[in-house]
Design a protein around this nucleic acid. Structure first.
Lengths: 165, 165
DNA sequence: AAAATATGTCAACATGGCTGACATAAATCG
DNA sequence: CGATTTATGTCAGCCATGTTGACATATTTT
C-alpha cells in the first residue's frame, strides 16, 4: 500500500469512528424512550423539513416502505409526528412533528450540534488538513487516544499534534 | 433556529448522507457473498492491523463479544481470517487475514478509497469550506441533486456552486 | 494455590433491514 | 367515463446484527 493510499485508508477509518461516535449521544437518549436510531432519523428529517411526504423519507433514508412504516407508525401513535393530507394531492400524507416531537427532535440534535460545532472549530484553522481534523475531532475525546494509538500502528504521518484537544 | 445553528444542522445531515453512501458500495459486494456490514468491519480492521486481538476489535467496534463472535466465526470458517496464539501471552488469539481475506478486504476497500480520494480532491482547494465540500462530495453523484434539493428547502446559504461535479 | 484475564459459548431477545403480495384512494390519461 | 398510474398502507415472514447474562476454559499473575 502506497503512502497516498495509506492516508486515504486512514480517512476511511476516521469516517467509521466519526460516525460511530456521532450516533452514540442520541442513541443513549432514545434508549430511555424505547426508540432506536431509525426513529431518530425519521423524527429528525420530519422536524427539519416539515411537510415531508412518505415518499420523500423513503428516498432520503434509502429504506423500504415496510421498514419506514414500522417506526413511523410508532412515532405517530405516541404523538411525536402527525399527518395531514396534501392540500393539492390528497393521496399524499404530509408529515409534521407535534409539539412533543419538536422537543424530542431538538433534544436529540443538541449533542450532535455541539459535537459538530466543536469539530468544525477544530478544523477551521487547519486549511488543507481541515477534513481529517474535523473527522478526528468528531470522535469522543476519551476515544481519540485509542484511535490515534491504533492508526499510529500502521503508519508514521499521523496528525499527532492533534490529540486530546 | 439561528443562522449558525442551521449550518451545523446541515452538517449533521451531510454526515448522515456521506456515511449512508460511503457504506453502500461495499454492501453491494458483501451481499454477493452472503456477508454483511459487520463482516466488513472486522475484515477491514484485521486486514489493516494484522495481529489485532479480539479485545482490540471489541473496543474498536464497540459491540459485544457475542455480536463479534458470530461474524468472526464465519470469517474464520470460510477461510478469510485465521488466528494464532499470542507468542508471549498464549491466551490471546491474534487475528490475521488469509490470502483470500486480504483479497476481499482489498476489493471492499477499493470503492471507498476512490470515493474518499475524490472527496478529498474536491475539498482540497476549498480552504474553510473543505469539510462541507468533502462530505458533500462523499455523496453519490446521482444523489447530490436530491440532497441539495432537500437541504435547499430549509435554508438559503447552501453551497450551490458545489453541485454535480 | 488463588485470583484475574482473554477468550469462547449458549440461550434468548429486540431492532431494523429485507421481500413480495395485495388493498385503497386519488389523480391522471386516453 | 373508464382504465391506469400513483401514493400510501398493510400483512406475513425472513435475516442480520445488536443486546444481556451466565458459564467454561486456558493461561497468566499475584
Amino acid at each position: 500500500m502506497g503512502h497516498a493510499e495509506a492516508l486515504l485508508a486512514q480517512t476511511i477509518e476516521l469516517m467509521f469512528f466519526a460516525y460511530r461516535d456521532f450516533t452514540s449521544d442520541p442513541d443513549a437518549i432514545l434508549a430511555e424512550r424505547g426508540f432506536g436510531r431509525a426513529h431518530h432519523r425519521v423524527l429528525h428529517f420530519v422536524s427539519r423539513y416539515p411537510g415531508l411526504r412518505v415518499a420523500d423519507l423513503l428516498e432520503i433514508l434509502k429504506i423500504t416502505k415496510q421498514s419506514l412504516a414500522r417506526v413511523l407508525k410508532q412515532l405517530i401513535e405516541e404523538g411525536f409526528i402527525e399527518q395531514r393530507s396534501g392540500p393539492v394531492d390528497r393521496r399524499e400524507r404530509l408529515l409534521y412533528t407535534t409539539e412533543a416531537g419538536s422537543r424530542l427532535a431538538r433534544k436529540l440534535m443538541e449533542p450532535q450540534l455541539e459535537r459538530v460545532a466543536d469539530a468544525l472549530r477544530a478544523a477551521a484553522s487547519k486549511g488543507g488538513e481541515a477534513v481529517e481534523a474535523f473527522l478526528f475531532a468528531m470522535i469522543d475525546p476519551a476515544e481519540r487516544g485509542r484511535v490515534l494509538g491504533l492508526i499510529g500502528r500502521s503508519r508514521a504521518d499521523v496528525p499527532a499534534d492533534e490529540d486530546e484537544r
